[in-house]
Every structure is written in C-alpha cells, then in structure tokens.
C-alpha cells in the first residue's frame, strides 16, 4: 500500500468531545489522552470526517475542499498532509492496518 492509499481513521481509543463558540476556532477534547486542542476549520473537518469513516488521503482532501465551500486551493493538499502527520503524532488518528 502506498502512502496515498493508506487509510486513516480517528483514534479507536476514547472519543472526541467538541465545543464550538464561534466559527473560527473549535475546541476538541480527546477522552483517551485527556488532551485539549484548538482547531482551525480545516483541521476540524478532517477529524470529523475520520471520526465516521476510514479514508485515504485524496478522499480526505476532497471532503475538506467541499466542506470549505469548494474553493480551489493548491496548498490545501499540503495542509491536509501536514495535518495528518500532526494528528498521527498527537494520537488523534491512526493508520488502518
């Protein structure tokens, strides 16, 4: 399986608790780690999508693009790649083996 085909899913240990006070920032509490995160809109979309399904990289990028209003942005794929790497480090997502 190549990196692009790798399926990602939200951490199977614990659950996510969301808190929104405005549209610019979302608070996420991960019950397994006890960590609290302040997320930007694309980051919140990535995690919300992976909370419900296991997805490959390209599908994640597609869904983020749609949810942000179908705005074409060349840098979005890079952003999502960085987000996946960060979330993996934080234990918020994991590769499906």
């Amino acid at each position: 399986m190549t990196q692009l085909q790798q399926l990602w899913t939200a951490s199977r240990l614990g659950t996510f608790q969301w808190r929104n006070w405005d549209e610019t920032e979302t608070i996420l509490f991960h019950t397994a780690s006890g960590d609290t995160h302040v997320l930007s809109p694309p980051a919140a979309v990535v995690l919300k999508e992976l909370e419900h399904a296991s997805l490959p990289f390209e599908e994640i990028v597609k869904r983020v693009t749609i949810s942000l209003g179908d705005v074409h942005d060349d840098s979005l794929a890079d952003q999502v790649e960085q987000l996946l790497d960060d979330f993996d480090q934080l234990g918020l997502i994991e590769p499906v083996t």
């Binding site: 808190r19 006070w21 405005d22 610019t24 920032e25 979302t26 509490f29 019950t31 609290t36 302040v38």
Partner: peptide, 25 residues
C-alpha cells in the same frame, strides 16, 4: 479574548485538569 483561547489558558493554569479527564473538560 476568545472562549477557546480562554479555555486553553485556564486549563494550563489548573492543578488537576488533565487528571480529571472528561469531568475536567
């Protein structure tokens, strides 16, 4: 300051936020 920032800031000033887990949040 925004409430998300205030929450993170206050959590950092807590003695037992991380220990209380979900209850703390």
């Amino acid at each position: 300051i925004s409430k998300p920032r205030a929450l993170v800031h206050a959590a950092a000033d807590s003695f037992n936020y991380s220990v209380l887990g979900t209850e703390g949040f």
